[in-house]
């Protein structure tokens, strides 16, 4: 009899906090939250891919700049560096936001990431083409 009461009590105790948590959670995570998170992760992964492509481009541009010091090679170097900086800052912010839940109040990155990742995908395609023709 006592065992049964304990069982019931523990099951109530186990369920209590969970059901209590799910209430506010449901409010914070309205339907579609998973989709938003997925968008952020896709944006981060593509951001990292962009960074890798830019590092490859940058290494070629740096080699060329070392041998040929000119406006042209300097321009390519600056171009790739700035794009790299942009991708690093964007991806870093997204990652901080996603993994450490750093408050993104006042920043746009708390919103659905579909626009950002679509821009990133376009950049990925563009950079792949540039790297391909640069590598030839």
């Amino acid at each position: 009899m006592i065992e049964k009461i304990l069982e019931v009590a523990s099951s109530v105790g186990g369920n209590g906090p969970e059901s209590g948590d799910s209430g506010p959670n449901d409010l914070q995570n309205p339907p579609g939250m998973d989709y938003i998170d997925l968008g952020t992760y896709v944006a981060i992964i593509i951001g990292i891919a962009n960074i890798c492509l830019l590092l490859a481009l940058l290494s070629i541009y740096l080699q060329n700049y070392k041998k040929i010091k000119s406006k042209f090679t300097m321009g390519l170097l600056v171009f790739a560096s700035l794009l790299l900086l942009q991708n690093m800052v964007t991806t870093l912010f997204l990652a901080l936001n996603a993994f450490f839940s750093i408050s993104s109040q006042g920043l746009d990155i708390g919103r659905p990431q579909l626009p950002l990742s679509s821009v990133n995908i376009i950049q990925l395609i563009a950079l792949s083409i540039l790297l391909k023709i640069t590598w030839e």
Binding site: N64, I68, F72, L76
Partner: peptide, 13 residues
């Protein structure tokens, strides 16, 4: 020429 020599890998060669 600039692109072939200074903008691509192996341009010096």
């Amino acid at each position: 020429l600039w692109w072939l020599i200074a903008g691509m890998k192996g341009g010096i060669n």
